[in-house]
């Protein structure tokens, strides 16, 4: 069965006919060509697919596209202001919080969610809040630094 879904993605209304079983991540990647949201596992653990739905971080690989009907969806592509990086993105760059870049969109989306809930997190709080995001490159040290620095910058600005 297919169904028409409509939602707002990065501020723009979108609408499409999709299979009932289409995952939200596939809708974003294949239909909308927003390929910044990645798929790194099939057991809902790696967090590379993290996006925001109605303001909260979710794993888009574990949600049906139709479940986002009427929702406000934010992906990594909507975070920066054009070429100008969001303070959190800039903090990842300044603190070398990424290497291969594959987990990075999910990390940034999680980071924004962490800071939303806790504007000035401690190192331990950041480490615990990253429980749902795997990175194989960085050993997390610089990701944690990035998020703390990004939080400070966001609070200041």
């Amino acid at each position: 069965m297919s169904v028409n879904v409509s939602m707002t993605v990065n501020g723009k209304p979108v609408s499409a006919e999709v299979e009932d079983e289409m995952l939200l991540v596939n809708f974003l990647r294949d239909h909308l060509r927003l390929t910044g949201t990645h798929v790194g596992c099939d057991t809902s653990q790696c967090g590379a697919c993290t996006i925001h739905v109605d303001g909260v971080a979710v794993k888009s690989c574990t949600m049906l596209a139709v479940q986002a009907e009427g929702s406000n969806v934010a992906t990594i592509e909507g975070v920066s202001d054009g070429e100008t990086l969001h303070p959190m993105q800039q903090a990842f760059k300044d603190n070398h919080g990424l290497q291969c870049g594959f987990c990075t969109p999910g990390m940034v989306m999680s980071a924004l969610d962490i800071v939303k809930n806790n504007p000035s997190p401690t190192e331990q709080e950041v480490r615990e809040a990253l429980e749902g995001n795997l990175c194989r490159c960085t050993g997390y040290t610089n990701i944690v630094r990035s998020i703390i620095a990004g939080a400070k910058e966001m609070e200041a600005s």
Partner: peptide
């Protein structure tokens, strides 16, 4: 390379 990865443009 970071700018493209951070904006989801990898």
């Amino acid at each position: 390379e970071d700018s493209r990865f951070l904006r989801g443009h990898g």
